[in-house]
């Protein structure tokens, strides 16, 4: 039996993750693009880790860290009442870390490519770092922001290993589309698997197409 639930859950997860990532990645990328700190390479390496590490490794360590049998997990559970293993909250935390480089890298590259003088001119007009970032820098890296948002969103939609490790496959809570497809194939329900797959395929294609049309300026030409 197919339901829309895994698909909705997938997009909910991707949406929440992308929103949180924007909040985290903008300050982080802004710091990375301008700092001369010795800690920079270490932080950069950590941010980039999810690119090369098998998702199962991340998932495995999340599982250990968040498990209520563990010091950190039990602290979260007792003091904050948060249970991150096999829950939607846990999926969000894991996805945020897993998709971090996809959001940070484009924004960092965009900021680094802007001339220093823009920032300096704004400071000399008495504007704070925050105002400068918000009103001067970010509006000039719109394409980088869009790329970051879309890549992080798409990457979260496509994630499998981390979700499986930390979320399991609880319908309505952690059973996202990619897991549902796997389960259906295992149960030899190819029709159901195809339903989820085709929809994911079409939606992600649509999103990416929109991005390339926007970045290529095709839409503007069309409107004019």
């Amino acid at each position: 039996m197919t339901t829309w639930q895994p698909l909705l859950l997938t997009f909910e997860l991707a949406g929440v993750t992308t929103a949180l990532l924007l909040l985290i990645a903008i300050p982080l990328a802004s710091w990375l693009s301008s700092t001369r700190s010795r800690a920079k390479p270490v932080i950069e390496a950590l941010v980039g880790m999810p690119l090369v590490l098998p998702p199962t490794v991340l998932g495995f360590y999340f599982l250990l860290a968040f498990s209520p049998g563990n010091a950190f997990g039990s602290w979260l559970n007792e003091w904050l009442g948060i249970k991150l293993v096999f829950s939607f909250g846990g999926l969000v935390v894991a996805s945020v870390i897993y998709s971090l480089p996809f959001m940070v890298h484009p924004i960092q590259a965009g900021l680094a490519a802007l001339p220093h003088s823009l920032k300096e001119a704004s400071y000399l007009m008495g504007k704070s770092r925050f105002t400068t970032l918000l009103k001067v820098l970010l509006p000039n890296i719109r394409t980088s922001l869009l790329t970051g948002i879309v890549l992080a969103f798409a990457h979260t939609v496509g994630e499998f290993g981390v979700v499986l490790m930390i979320g399991g496959s609880i319908p309505g809570k952690t059973r996202v589309a990619s897991i549902a497809i796997y389960d259906e194939v295992e149960a030899l329900n190819y029709g159901n698997a195809n339903f989820y797959s085709l929809i994911l395929f079409l939606i992600t294609f649509g999103i990416l197409l929109l991005v390339y049309l926007t970045n290529g300026g095709y839409l503007k030409k069309f409107w004019k």
């Binding site: 001339p115 003088s117 823009l118 300096e120 001119a121 704004s122 000399l124 001067v136 509006p139 000039n140």
Partner: peptide, 12 residues
């Protein structure tokens, strides 16, 4: 007031 070599006008 600083006039930069590249003018540093805000493009947007």
């Amino acid at each position: 007031g600083f006039v930069f070599q590249d003018y540093a006008l805000f493009p947007h």
